[in-house]
Design a protein around this nucleic acid. Structure first.
Length: 371
DNA sequence: CGCCTTTGACCAGCGC
DNA sequence: GCGCTGGTCAAAGGCG
C-alpha cells in the first residue's frame, strides 16, 4: 500500500477545508457549496433547478455555465480526495488492528509497538528530510514536515497502545483533522523598502512578539510572533529577512486562526493600531490573502526558485515586481497575472464564494421578476 | 496602567 | 554526556 503518495495528494486539498464531511453524493454545485463550510450567504438547494430565466442574459449564461463546469470539476476533485482520505483512515485502522493483534501475541508489546510505529512512520512520511529539517524537534515534526505534506499523527496516537485501543476510529479521525488544521504552514514573502529594517508584516491580524533569535543560516534575526487577537488562537508567525535578498521579509505562518479575520471596523481598528508601527507593505495587498487560511497562492518556484523555497506550501507574492533582480518585463507580469488567475480559479473557497454570490444574484433577479 | 517590545536565560532535540 | 541550535519564557523597560 502506497501511503506516501496518497498522503501527498490529500494534503494538498485538506488544507482547503479539513473539516469537510465525508460525503459521497454526486458532484454538483450544491454539494460543493455545502461541503465547504464557507461563510457565504446560504444559497438555494438546487441552483440549477430554480427555473431562472438565464437565457435572457447571454453573458450570465455563459458565465454560469463555465462556473458550473468549474464547480463540477472541483467537486469531483473534492470527492476523490475524500475517498482517498477515507481509504487512508481505513488503512490506518487496519494497521492499528494488526498492531494490537501483534501486541496481544507478543511478550514485549512495547518494543513491538515501537517497531510498528517506526514502520508506519516510514510508510507515511514523505520524502526524506533535509539535514536542516532533521534537526527539528520531535514535537515540531508534524508541522515541519508539512510544508508540502501533512503527517498523520499515528505515532503520537499510538504512544500508549493499551489506552489507544479504547479510543474509537472517529476520535482518531477527529484528532487527525485537528492535527491537519494545526499543521497548516504558509509562507509570505514581503518586499520592504531598502531603508526599512523592521520585521513587521501587515496582514491584518494582531500579533505579539515573544522572541527574537539569530539563526545559524541567516545573519538577520528571526522574530517570533503569536496571534494576540484571540487569547486561544494557536497561530504563530516567524518573520525573518531573506538571506538572499534582505529587502524581502519571509513570514512563516503556523497553524490556523480559530477566530474570524479582524475585518470588522472595531477589529480593523485594533489591528491597525497593533500594526501602526509597521512599515512593510504586504505584497498580498489584502490581509486575508496574506495570512488567512485560504491563502491565495502564487508559485514562483519556476521563475525564481532561489527565493520561493520549494518547501513552502504557499508562496504569496501578488506583486508583479520581481522579488529580486533578473526577471522583469511584460512577459513576467503576464505570467504572474495568469498564475494569480489560475490560483484563484483553483481556490475552492473563492469559487464557492463566487458561485454563492452569482446564485444569490440570480435568485435576487428571479424574485424581482416574480414581484 | 495596560500593552507591547526587548533581550538574556532557559529548555529540549539532535549530532557527535 | 556535551555542545550546538531553534524555540520559548519572563523580567524589565518603553510608550501612549
Amino acid at each position: 500500500m502506497d501511503y506516501s503518495s496518497s498522503l501527498v495528494d490529500v494534503s494538498l486539498d485538506l488544507n482547503l477545508n479539513p473539516l469537510r464531511r465525508n460525503d459521497d453524493r454526486p458532484a454538483s454545485a450544491l454539494s460543493v457549496k455545502k461541503e465547504w463550510s464557507f461563510g457565504v450567504p446560504s444559497a438555494p438547494a438546487n441552483f440549477m433547478g430554480l427555473g431562472i430565466n438565464v437565457s435572457s442574459v447571454k453573458e450570465e449564461e455563459s458565465t454560469a455555465g463555465a462556473l458550473v463546469e468549474e464547480l463540477n470539476r472541483v467537486s469531483a476533485e473534492n470527492k476523490k480526495l475524500t475517498e482517498m482520505l477515507t481509504v487512508m483512515c481505513e488503512n490506518y485502522t487496519a494497521l492499528r488492528n494488526q498492531l494490537m493483534d501483534h501486541m496481544a501475541r507478543n511478550s514485549h508489546p512495547a518494543d513491538e509497538a515501537a517497531a510498528v510505529e517506526e514502520e508506519v512512520e516510514k510508510e507515511h512520511s514523505p520524502s526524506s528530510l533535509s539535514p536542516a529539517s532533521s534537526r527539528k524537534r520531535k514535537s515540531d515534526s508534524t508541522t515541519t514536515n508539512n510544508n508540502d505534506n501533512y503527517n498523520l499523527p499515528l505515532a503520537t496516537n499510538n504512544n500508549n497502545g493499551a489506552s489507544e485501543s479504547s479510543s474509537t476510529d472517529e476520535e482518531s479521525f477527529k484528532r487527525l483533522r485537528e492535527e491537519v488544521i494545526k499543521a497548516k504552514i504558509s509562507r509570505v514573502y514581503v518586499r520592504t523598502e531598502p531603508s526599512d529594517t523592521g520585521l513587521i508584516v501587515k496582514d491584518g491580524y494582531q500579533w505579539r512578539k515573544y522572541g527574537q533569535k539569530v539563526t545559524r543560516d541567516n545573519p538577520c534575526p528571526r522574530a517570533y510572533f503569536k496571534c494576540s487577537f484571540a487569547p486561544s488562537c494557536p497561530v504563530k508567525k516567524k518573520v525573518q529577512r531573506s538571506v538572499e535578498d534582505q529587502s524581502v521579509v519571509v513570514a512563516t505562518y503556523e497553524g490556523e486562526h480559530n477566530h474570524p479575520h479582524p475585518s470588522t471596523p472595531e477589529a480593523a481598528a485594533a489591528a491597525a493600531t497593533a500594526s501602526s508601527s509597521g512599515r512593510a507593505l504586504a505584497i498580498a495587498g489584502s490581509p486575508s490573502l496574506a495570512a488567512g487560511p485560504a491563502t491565495m497562492t502564487l508559485d514562483l518556484t519556476k521563475s525564481k526558485p532561489s527565493v520561493a523555497s520549494t518547501s513552502a506550501r504557499n508562496v504569496v507574492a501578488p506583486s508583479p515586481k520581481p522579488l529580486a533582480g533578473g526577471i522583469d518585463g511584460p512577459e513576467i507580469q503576464q505570467l504572474l497575472v495568469e498564475q494569480m488567475a489560475t490560483s484563484l480559479t483553483k481556490d475552492p473557497d473563492f469559487t464557492a464564494a463566487l458561485a454563492a454570490a452569482i446564485s444569490g444574484r440570480m435568485l435576487q433577479r428571479n424574485s424581482c421578476e416574480r414581484w
